[in-house]
Amino acid sequence: MPLLDAREVHGGYGGMNILNGVDMAIEADQIGVIVGPNGAGKSTMLKAIFGQLNVTQGDILLRGEPIQNLPTNRLVELGMGFVPQEHNVFPSLTVKENLEMGAFLKPGNVKRMLSKVYEFFPPLHEKRHQPAGELSGGQRQMVAMGRALMAEPELLLLDEPTAGLSPKYMYEIFDRVKEVNAAGVGILMVEQNAKQALAIADKGFVLAAGQNRFTDTGQALLADPDVAKSFLGG
């Protein structure tokens, strides 16, 4: 049974439809990557999965259980973590406090998960008493991912974790994503750096105008000349 199975999802903001029947499924040990032009509905799809969007049609199943219309804290309890595209840290809280908030529903986890997250992201340990708002962009992304990991999610939704980062940091973040995935967390990630992201993807989804244009393994999409021509810049 797939970890996440979204079928024919329709939905949008205030009556305006953005998603027009999106399908998306990944297994528990996979990395899924969503690419597509600006405004394609990539962020909107992640919001739909994380219960922040009014889904008008279709099904979203987590391990076979429907999760539509569940309150956010319930989704977190069920094992979903979400890192939004923007404003994804608490700027006035210290790095450590940011991470603690990630384990808000599992206070018993804090100690164990803190050391685990510090292991994944050593710079965070060094900066743990600094307000997250003072960190560099790359470190802030680490805080954001770390916060989501604190709840020990089974499925982690990442919205453009490398946006605005230098190539060095981009590869660093992708390496972390692979490690997190290897530690048993399913990943569904939106990416602008499409080629590099598809290279680490088990599944790739090319969205345009709120619909799947191509869905295949990451390697197959990279090799597909049509995908390359219209979506990967040749």
């Binding site: 804290n73 309890e77 939004p84 840290v89 608490f90 006035s92 908030m101 808000f104 709840a151």
Partner: peptide
Amino acid sequence: SDNPDLARASGI
């Protein structure tokens, strides 16, 4: 106070 949406996403 910092970010209500992210607080909700954290399960608060």
